[in-house]
Structures are given as structure tokens and as C-alpha cells.
């Protein structure tokens, strides 16, 4: 019996699929899946460069506008700089879009048979989800470095440990979101257009109700109330805290909780969907 999936609610289905006496390591499998996914990106530097610049463009366009319209209202809580408030949000947004769309790649693989081929391999099932989601995190780490480097002259203050913890938290959250995206792709694989319809319908409310781009405090009370149920809101708050050097606080703890819960639920739902994906 493997200990890996024993506590998960899906253990009745996933447990049997993953109990391997001569066990494969989840870590190794995840690495294999991640590097396989990364290879085409690395082979195509242009897409890589383009991807790196994208958040900068957004930052450059939206940031000044934010400064203009909010003044220092948002930044006040963070030692005065609006960038301190905004940079973590941009990273969350990049992760959000990267991982929530990762299922779309899968749609094509359903048609071609590439998904089927991966399913027949002895790769552990969670690694198929985790590896794919983490693949989105690698460019994100690069983007983080670039953004931070560019923003420091504008008054952004870097707290390396906090920033690193922030990226790890994002990766955990991203694994959950990526898995859900994967599950969505599987669920709608016979009507592919549904993927984008559902993804777009969910992603924007999720984003707006997280206070990512505009502070929730400026929104109506009902928004703030609804945001209490949005795990992304907790992650965004925690990221801001972490990038501001705040390592252990209740905000950060709530962020970890939200990220871990998203990962657990995402993996449970994703694996369950995956085991039935060939029918």
C-alpha cells in the first residue's frame, strides 16, 4: 500500500491505482513530466522571451494608471509604495492565467492520443497533474526576477526570503488550479469550446473578487463579503505580505491554508477526472 494517497478522499479509486510495491518516486515522476513539458518552451526562445515580457507590459500600462487613480491609498499599508502592493499581484495574475489555461493544451492531446500514451506509462497519476502545473511556475520564477529587477529602481523593496516563500506558495496554489484546469478539460473534452467558456466565466470574477488589481476596500460591502469565500483573495493578501517581508502572520497563514486547500481539492478532483478520462 502506498502512503501517498491514503488520506485523500479519492483513495478508493486512486489508492488502487497508485499502490506500487516497487514504488516510483512522485518526485522523480513529477520532474520527468515537468521537464518534458518545459523542453518545447526552452527550444523556442522567442516564446520564452515574449512570455517574460508580457507581465512587464501589463505592469507598465496598468501600474501608472493605478498610481494615478489610487494615489497612495493602496500602498499606504505597505510602507508607501504602490509597487509593493502591485508587483505581487502581477505575479499571482501570471500564475493564475498560466495554470488555469494549462488544461487547454490537454484538449489537443486528447485528440491526438498523446494523453492516452502518457496514461499508459507507469508515471504516478498525481505527477501527471503536478508536473504540468509546475511547468507553468518555471517561467514565472523567471518573470518574478525580471519584474523585481525592473521595479527596484522605482522604489520596490525586495525581501528575498519572503519573495521566495511567496513563489513557493504560488506554486502550491498553481498546482491546485492547474489540476482543476486539467479536470475541466477532461470534463468538457467532447465539447471543447466549453473549456474556454467555463474558464473565462470563472477566472474574471475570481480575479476581481480577490482584490488583485484594485483594492477590495474600495469596492462595495457585498464584494468584500463574497471575497471572504474566495481562496484567491487569501493568497493575494498573503503574497503581498510575503513580498513585504512579513513571513509569519495570520494573513500569511491564511494564504498557506488557501493555497494548500486549493492544491488538495484540485489534485483530488483532477486525479479522479483523469482516471476516467479514457472512456
Amino acid at each position: 500500500m502506498s502512503t501517498l494517497t491514503e488520506t485523500a478522499p479519492i483513495s478508493t479509486t486512486a489508492g488502487t491505482h497508485d499502490s506500487q510495491p516497487a514504488r516510483r518516486s512522485l518526485l522523480r515522476d513529477t520532474g520527468i513530466v515537468m521537464f518534458r513539458e518545459l523542453r518545447p518552451v526552452l527550444r523556442d526562445p522567442f516564446s520564452l522571451i515574449f512570455g517574460m515580457i508580457q507581465p512587464l507590459v501589463f505592469l507598465g500600462l496598468f501600474g501608472p494608471w493605478l498610481v494615478g487613480s489610487l494615489g497612495d491609498q493602496a500602498g499606504d499599508a505597505f510602507g508607501g509604495s504602490v509597487w509593493q502592493w502591485f508587483v505581487p499581484a502581477i505575479l499571482v495574475m501570471t500564475a493564475l492565467f498560466g495554470t488555469s489555461t494549462t488544461g487547454a493544451n490537454l484538449l489537443f492531446e486528447f485528440q491526438t492520443g498523446a494523453h492516452e500514451r502518457m496514461m499508459v506509462t507507469p508515471l504516478s497519476r498525481p505527477s501527471l497533474l503536478i508536473g504540468r502545473s509546475l511547468k507553468e511556475m518555471v517561467p514565472l520564477a523567471g518573470q518574478a526576477v525580471i519584474i523585481v529587477a525592473v521595479m527596484i529602481p522605482f522604489g520596490f523593496q525586495l525581501y528575498p526570503v519572503g519573495a521566495l516563500a511567496g513563489l513557493v506558495m504560488l506554486a502550491v496554489f498553481g498546482v491546485g488550479l492547474g489540476s482543476l484546469s486539467y479536470a475541466l478539460a477532461i470534463a468538457v473534452r467532447k465539447q471543447e469550446w466549453m473549456f474556454w467558456a467555463v474558464q473565462q466565466t470563472l477566472i474574471f470574477p475570481l480575479m476581481i473578487l480577490s482584490g488583485m488589481l484594485l483594492p477590495l476596500e474600495t469596492g462595495p460591502a457585498w464584494m468584500q463579503a463574497v471575497a471572504k469565500f474566495n481562496p484567491l483573495a487569501y493568497v493575494v493578501d498573503a503574497e503581498r505580505a510575503l513580498f513585504n517581508g512579513e513571513l509569519a502572520s495570520s494573513t500569511v497563514a491564511w494564504g498557506w491554508l488557501a493555497a494548500l486547500a486549493t492544491a488538495a481539492i484540485g489534485l483530488a478532483v483532477g486525479i479522479r477526472a483523469m482516471l476516467r478520462s479514457a472512456d
Binding site: 518534458r36 518545447p40 489537443f108 492531446e109 491526438t112 492520443g113 498523446a114 492516452e116 500514451r117
Partner: peptide, 8 residues
């Protein structure tokens, strides 16, 4: 499989 197993 009957389809193409390689990622495009």
C-alpha cells in the same frame, strides 16, 4: 495507440 502518441 491508434492515435499519435507524441506531443505536437
Amino acid at each position: 495507440g491508434q492515435g499519435n502518441g507524441a506531443g505536437h
